[in-house]
């Protein structure tokens, strides 16, 4: 196989249909950028889940009465509740935190907001069992078993809030991926069309190639490589779009959330990790579409 020959054919082909080629590259780029965006959201959700999974706790808040009178959890109903919690299957650790400790913790968390601290009184903070589960998804068990028991003021489940947040992110991811899919379909049709046009404009060459006994591969490869090269350029543009999107858009709108540690920032490393998938997708889609088109529509 003479690579120099094949590549000179590819360059000629891409130049000859320059408008089609540009359309093909742009559509591919937008499609891949959307796909990349979707993948970044997936990565973000994964990171957050990993981040929070170890820290998620169920808080069993105790009534005011217990909070005020039982500092060490030695009396009933506190001691009974503790042993009941410890014996519940799936519970990893149970930590008792009395009102004073709770207040200290509150002060630590909000040390940046002194005006809030000035208003706070220890009496507002209930004593709490902080329960860590082996499986953070099974918070319902605790809620069902302990809510309403004597001495229990309520069961606070952090995971419920996060779940809603993740649902939002996953919805965003789905929308982005569906858009990517629609755009990918457009890209696919354009690739197929471009190859047909390309084969038509080169029908004399192709006819001669067939006649002098060029193999199927030799005749088809320039068209396939043409599609793949356009796909790769599209992927490069897509990565460019993601980098620009991160620098000028995502960073700006998520600054507050990332700085306070609520959501992890989207880093250039994330884009770097996502981009091989974009290239792979581009190459696979371009090559497959090209191959199928050549087999179905073009007699080579």
């Amino acid at each position: 196989m003479r690579t120099s020959f094949v590549f000179s054919e590819v360059v000629t082909g891409l130049r000859r249909n320059v408008t089609m080629t540009i359309a093909m590259i742009l559509t591919t780029a937008i499609s891949l950028a959307l796909l990349g965006g979707g993948l970044l959201v997936v990565r973000m959700v994964d990171k957050m889940q990993a981040n929070y999974a170890g820290k998620l706790e169920v808080s069993v808040l105790l009534t005011n009465d217990v909070s005020a009178n039982d500092k060490d959890c030695t009396q009933q109903p506190c001691a009974g509740l503790r042993s009941a919690l410890e014996q519940t299957s799936g519970v990893e650790t149970v930590v008792f935190q009395n009102r004073d400790e709770g207040f200290e913790r509150f002060k630590r968390i909000f040390e940046a907001q002194p005006e809030l601290l000035k208003l706070a009184r220890p009496e507002a903070i209930p004593a709490t069992f902080r329960v860590k589960l082996e499986d953070p998804d099974r918070t319902d068990v605790i809620k069902q078993a302990f809510e309403g028991k004597p001495g229990v003021k309520g069961v606070d489940d952090q995971s419920k809030f996060l779940e809603r947040f993740f649902e939002g992110l996953n919805g965003l991811r789905d929308v982005v991926l569906i858009l990517a899919l629609i755009q990918a379909f457009a890209a696919l049709l354009l690739i197929s069309n471009t190859i047909q046009v390309s084969a038509f404009t080169r029908r004399v060459e192709v006819g001669i190639m067939r006649l002098v006994g060029a193999t199927r591969w030799y005749t088809q490869l320039p068209f396939l490589i043409e599609a793949v090269v356009a796909g790769i350029i599209g992927a490069v543009c897509a990565v460019g779009l993601l980098v620009l999107g991160k620098a000028f858009f995502i960073d700006r709108i998520t600054r507050n959330l990332t700085e306070s540690g609520i959501i992890p920032p989207v880093g250039y490393l994330d884009i770097l990790i996502v981009s091989p998938w974009l290239f792979l997708t581009a190459i696979v889609i371009a090559a497959t579409t090209g191959y199928v088109t050549l087999r179905l529509y073009v007699r080579l």
Partner: peptide, 27 residues
Amino acid sequence: CVFQDFRLLPTKTVAENVAFALEVIGK
């Protein structure tokens, strides 16, 4: 094969047209 309408590639020179037949079979 030779035809009535020659079937030469207009963008290639005489030598390139002849060489084309060998290039595409990988000589």
